[in-house]
Nucleic acid binder design. Sequence first.
DNA 1: GCAGTGACTAGTA
DNA 2: ATACTAGCCACTG
Length: 104
Amino acid sequence: MVSKRYEMIYEVVKRIPKGRVATYGQVAELAGYAGEARQVGYALSALGEESGVPWQRVINAKGEISARWDPSCESEQVQLLRAEGVVVEEGKISLEKYRWRARG
DNA sequence: GCAGTGACTAGTA
DNA sequence: ATACTAGCCACTG
């Protein structure tokens, strides 16, 4: 069973529209846990592929995909993002173009 | 409660 | 521009 904070983070991640991305800090802030960017990544690490959470839409402040225990997931995340229309170049994403805005 | 760890971020060189 | 360092706060043992 995950912590309540994790569920809040998952809810925010699920709110990220298709073809958009958000940074860890942004997700944390929207979830009401500003400054806990690390916890966002930590929470996503506890996710499963069947969790229904679009974890691939969450990237770091540099627009890059943070490495996990398995580096192969990096390429997989890129494929998922590209499938949604997000252009990924050299493993980086233009935050200025694809960053999600909760305000609409 | 203490110590170690982490899918981060911002600052400095 | 890249590389390194410090700060951050919650989870785990």
